[in-house]
Design a protein around this nucleic acid. Structure first.
Lengths: 338, 338
DNA sequence: CTGAAAGCGCTTACAG
DNA sequence: CTGAAAGCGCTTACAG
């Protein structure tokens, strides 16, 4: 690509003007004599001139690029998130550079190497050291999985604790008492918060949390499937929970498959509640009951807040996005005691 | 971000050496006296120095970035494609800049503005003019939906014609004669090629292509659903095709839903064949019969070929990736005539 | 209205 | 081994 693309210097030479004049013409700075302007423009187009943005960036100190770092852009959560972020950034005149790597040095190069004007990402993907660098260098950043706030750092999270409680309350109201929960990995904010909400609700209703009903599903499809399958096949039917709350969409799907595979009916025998996962393109996606988190809204806040910080229009803020409770077909009312 | 990040100049001043020496130290050019080296290194780390990559790029003429332009990174095809491209690029030391825009000027800025070292994308998203610019400026590019070849342009496509034929032959062998086809938009290479293969196979078997069985599904879920639903509800049951070939995964899903919704059994009454779409995360994704295209392989070739061209190691090539026929549960053998 | 010069942060011959 | 200088492609005061 480095070949012989023409520069303003080429234009200047050919047009017999200075590079300053060329620059002025090209940037529509209304100070050039119309005739000169015409002439320069013509030469420029004749040379197929396209400005070298890197040089411009070096001057202006801006890249009009946002770095988005994540582990994946697949799945019912990450995919719409990534797509929305890219789309909204573009609408605002920013490009987006996706960093899928865990490699901290890659991250660092991008973040601190002035390749992007700011970053959006998941806090659990970066080390404390990098976070520290972000702070001290006053890098503009928005985290979407954890509450962090600083002069140049904002965040946007779901009201996971609240919704964890709400969903559990709902099940209890429906007469459930033996309620299970599928956790994500230890350090996932949403998992922890949802679980905390669940425990609070259980406690308030004087229901005890049965440790056998707490599953480690890793927030992934396969592990959730495995752990539930394992449980169902090694546990007496009468000891099944009557309802399971999946900490996220993928674990809901894994659980759904495992339960179905054992020919156990949903919701007649086991009710299932989920978070997210309402945009699955599948022939007959189950009509899940649960919390629907508006991902696009989250993406929108993240991008716009970041850009506002880049323009120094605001300090970092924390935004909580409210999920909506959606009644599907996977919860059934339960007769009193058992 | 532009704040007061430290530069080699700052280091030089503080270390009492020239910027050239700093540069040499930082780039591990083994020419500096160990003591000086130590000293500089220490100051650098003390100043939290991180090189400004833009300046480096301006010098080297390389960005180590690949532009990927597409309309979407969602769906069973685009999503794994985008993710694979990002991953493989990263493994090769390249970042990836996703351009979701149709805006040609955005594209142009990126492609020609030296923001990326090369591009991967869909030919139908760019205008002839831009393509021409790519050619004349010898931009390195790989197209993944159409056969194009030039000194600096390569492409990677699926063997869609072949597979369209193969799949149709298979249905014919299974005794089907009334075979429908769901098309994509007019200018989609894969759609055209698969359809061409279908027609050839039909012709060779002396079966006539019933125009009522040719559906315009746009390669999207909703439109495919609509067109099939429309057909099923306005056509006598005896006039249904016994098999339908969906031109891509999303139309297969749309068709699947429409057929199911009409309480028509698959495959007993209508067999359904698909392209791609084998990685759908859904609780009970139908086990489709059809062609499984190795998307990761496609991504891998695209990225590696592009990088080889960037390094001037090869001229543009055309690669055809072979799809694999997978027997699922959506095709049933058909008794002779009707 | 136009041009010469300095500078963005870096690298790379070239002297010393 | 180290430094002064030119240059990557552009912009931006500052003279004229």
């Amino acid at each position: 690509m480095t070949n012989k693309r023409s520069t303003i210097k080429d234009i200047a030479r050919k047009a017999n003007v200075s590079i300053a004049t060329v620059s002025n013409v090209l940037n529509d700075i209304d100070v050039v004599k119309p005739k000169t302007r015409q002439h320069v423009l013509q030469i420029a187009s004749q040379l197929n001139y396209v400005p070298n943005l890197r040089a411009k960036q070096l001057q202006s100190g801006q890249t009009k690029m946002i770095g988005f770092f994540c582990n994946s852009i697949s799945g019912p959560y990450f995919n719409p998130l990534a797509e929305s972020i890219a789309k909204i950034a573009e609408e605002n005149g920013y490009g987006i550079n996706i960093l899928l790597s865990n490699d901290q040095s890659m991250l660092r190069r991008n973040i601190l190497g002035d390749l992007v004007d700011g970053i959006i990402g998941f806090e659990d993907l970066i080390t404390d050291k990098e976070l520290q660098l972000i702070r001290t260098n006053r890098i503009k950043a928005v985290f979407i999985d954890r509450i962090i706030q600083d002069e140049t750092i904002g965040s946007v999270v779901f009201d996971s604790y609240q919704k964890g409680k709400e969903v559990t309350d709902y099940l209890i109201q429906q007469g459930h008492q033996k309620i299970g929960f599928i956790l994500g990995k230890d350090d996932i904010y949403d998992s922890n918060e949802r679980f905390r909400g669940y425990k609070t609700a259980m406690e308030k209703a004087n229901l005890k949390v049965n440790p056998n009903y707490i599953f480690k599903g890793e927030f992934e499809l396969e592990p959730a499937f495995q752990v539930i399958e394992q449980f169902l096949t090694t546990t007496a039917r009468k000891d099944y929970p009557t309802a399971i709350i999946a900490g996220n969409d993928l674990s809901a799907i894994g659980a759904y498959r495992a339960i179905k595979q054992q020919k156990i009916r949903i919701p007649e025998e086991i009710s299932l509640v989920s978070f997210d996962g309402f945009d699955l393109d599948s022939p007959h996606r189950p009509n899940l009951t649960g919390i629907h988190n508006p991902i696009v809204e989250q993406a929108k806040f993240a991008v716009e807040h970041l850009i506002a910080m880049i323009h120094n229009q605001t300090p970092g803020k924390v935004q909580t996005i409210e999920g909506h409770f959606v009644v599907g077909e996977t919860v059934q009312q339960r007769a009193e005691e058992r």
